[in-house]
């Protein structure tokens, strides 16, 4: 959460609510946005680390709002993050541990285990499909996110198939 906020602030100074709606606009429904409390907590931590600074803007009709902007240290941290290669997402090793250890745990029906997992994945996939068809065609980032999730799911399913072929 820290770095996305830094990235959003790199363009122009903004206050907490602006940042929340910017995040929602970018990732769409596919990714649940953090609540405003989380955003403020994160901003305070960033300020404590000297990556952003803030200043109150006085408003007449409403309560004052606090506008955050990037410090040079923040800009550096952002640049460093962007340049550093990212780790890929890891496989769901939770299921694999279950599958691997099930004979020890006295669960012999690995096929049932696999089937259960597959059903789960397929239902997830259906959810993603629904989401994709409900998403506005112009929200490219959002659609790409869904696509990515789907491809990961397909990979998970293929891996399940491999497990099934090897273990059955």
């Amino acid at each position: 959460m820290r770095l996305p906020l830094l990235a959003l602030l790199a363009k122009e100074p903004a206050h907490g609510y602006e940042l929340k709606s910017l995040l929602e606009q970018t990732f769409g429904q596919a990714y649940p946005s953090p609540n405003i409390g989380q955003i403020y907590v994160t901003l305070q931590r960033l300020e404590r680390d000297g990556l952003v600074k803030s200043q109150d803007v006085i408003q007449t009709t409403r309560p004052n709002k606090r506008v955050y902007e990037l410090t040079p240290a923040g800009r550096e941290a952002l640049a460093a993050w962007i340049e550093e290669p990212s780790e890929g997402p890891r496989v769901r090793d939770d299921f694999f541990v279950k599958l691997a250890l099930s004979p020890l745990a006295g669960v012999t029906d690995q096929m049932a285990l696999i089937n259960r997992q597959r059903r789960h994945y397929l239902n997830l996939m259906r959810g993603l499909s629904k989401l994709a068809s409900a998403t506005d065609r112009d929200s490219r980032i959002s659609l790409l996110l869904i696509e990515g999730a789907m491809l990961h799911l397909q990979a998970d399913l293929d891996w399940l198939e491999r497990c099934q072929e090897e273990l059955m």
Partner: peptide, 30 residues
């Protein structure tokens, strides 16, 4: 689902109640 010429699973697909959770469930950002 077929495997080796036999049906190993026959499921009804259901849509998750909150599909929006799905993407986050698969792909964690950050």
């Amino acid at each position: 689902n077929l495997f080796d010429g036999m049906i190993i699973d026959d499921m009804d697909v259901v849509t998750p109640i909150r599909p929006s959770v799905a993407a986050a469930g698969v792909l964690r950002l950050g």
